[in-house]
Design a protein around this nucleic acid. Structure first.
Lengths: 137, 137
DNA sequence: GTCTATGCAAACGATTTGCATCCAA
DNA sequence: TTGGATGCAAATCGTTTGCATAGAC
């Protein structure tokens, strides 16, 4: 994702465009992993030593509220950020403790049809979140 | 679940049987919700004021290691405990922020077959965890 | 009697908050 | 110019740890 595209996303999210937001979103959009706030801070601080960890937290939170970033919490309770907005699942490696995106149209269709065809009594489904745990081989 | 059954579970898990473990497992096995450690402590403390929150944490952790309790982490990063050991999913109400168990053999079979029939390149699936988010109606 | 479980208090670590200053619009 | 964004430090809070004592086996 290039500079212009990132700026567009930030502005479309209804946010002021700042240097910090540019740098932080840039670090995220490059990463295939699902970094924590601290990891994002590490990635950017050599080139941008003045951006504080507090700002990274606040900025990531603003991105989530603006809908241009997704967040989830891993098994250890630490927040993870994901710039991929489309419906997708996550692979979690029990050995390396790392996440990877898993996009599979068939699986998504399967889940979608299941919940369309099977009403859950007393509950209205809005979204489903699937984590696939196992080992990289 | 009665006293004898709880004692059996604790002993079969290879753990010493203590009054604290009895009380803590008892509080969990009664609850359809998925309480936090603090919630468990609240539930038991009027009848057992000497059981400390630290002991609740250590005990719940021992149960998980012994395999007689499952734990997961909610979206806010707080640990939740679940005495239901069989494969099942969770319903999460965005309004009340509460979890309910969702057992559905068809859904479980669907997911199981999907991952049996669709090899994920470079990944060996061990378990899948599904959270269904929405609203109680 | 031995070895683990418990209670207590202090430590920890990820995240949030308050507030003065800065800067994009 | 002005309201929102940033940097810094202190506060928060769920959870863990260390250690002396108690209790299960």
């Amino acid at each position: 994702m290039d500079t212009a595209e990132i700026k567009k996303r930030i502005v479309q999210g209804g946010m002021k465009f700042t240097h910090q937001r540019m740098v932080i979103y840039g670090a995220l959009s490059l990463s295939e992993d699902h970094p924590t706030a601290e990891r994002v801070h590490e990635k950017i601080k050599s080139a941008n030593p003045s951006i504080s960890l507090g700002t990274v937290y606040k900025t990531l939170d603003s991105f989530v509220n603006a809908g241009i970033l997704q967040k989830f919490t891993d098994d250890t309770g630490i927040m993870r950020f994901d710039p991929v907005l489309e419906t997708h699942s996550h692979l979690y490696c029990n050995d390396s403790k790392e996440f990877r995106d898993f996009k599979n149209p068939l699986l998504e269709k399967l889940l979608k049809s299941f919940f369309e065809e099977n009403e859950i009594e007393g509950f209205e489904v809005e979204e489903v979140s699937l984590v696939i745990k196992g080992k990289t081989k």
